[in-house]
Amino acid sequence: MTAHLVIFVAGFAGSFHCIGMCGGFACALGRDPQGRGATVLRHLLYNMGRLTTYCFLGGLAGALGQVICTSQGSTVPLLSGPLDTAQRILAILAGLLMIAMALQFFGLLPRLHRVAPGFGASTLAASMRGLLAAPGRAAPLAFGVFNGFLPCPLVYSFAAQAASTAGALPGFLTMTAFGLGTFPAMLLMGGVGRALAPAWRQRGVWLAGSCILLLGLVTVGRGILPFAAHIAHGWPGGYPA
């Protein structure tokens, strides 16, 4: 549970980073002319679409991890329990990926150019703007769904974490925690508007980077150290997030 809490915090902090891109979308989604209730509904639908995509990606990544580690067949709870070799390798890879992402958040790594395969992602992003103006309840929902698929280092990090859990369900839970973590800021963006000091955004990015770094280190450790799991499990008072 503690791990999911960390992920939630990372998602929350990271979402200040998201404000750069997704926040712009949320703002553009704007207010509904039919009043406050309609506006809230609009943004809830948008975020629900986004969350669904994240959850789905998490489940998918977890299932993928499971396929890789299928020799054992049994899934392990997040950050604990004994691991077999395949799971160790997966954990190390995922952890390294997360650390790389975290370093990128700190600006210590050059931006990985076009991490996502360019296959239609940019045209999709461009044409999605058409949905923002479209009337009806379905448009923000669809918009959220596509939004979730847009390339984003934060999402990649947690998808990697989800894959390292080597199970569809834990993977799903990982991404759910992350997605829920992004809720407050994104809702805030939509409701309150765009007034958030850049300094705060920077702090959010740092905090998110720290969380991801920590999770990445623990994940790598899980792969390398036989007893790291126990340490993680027995860490008193949760994580120093």
């Binding site: 669904t52 489940g59 949905l131 669809a142």
Partner: peptide, 20 residues
């Protein structure tokens, strides 16, 4: 064009939920 995207998005939303 927007309608096509909405359909695909909602379809995706539904099927992802079914999957979950």
């Amino acid at each position: 064009a927007a309608w096509l995207l909405i359909r695909l998005g909602v379809g995706g939303f539904l099927s992802m939920n079914i999957m979950l």
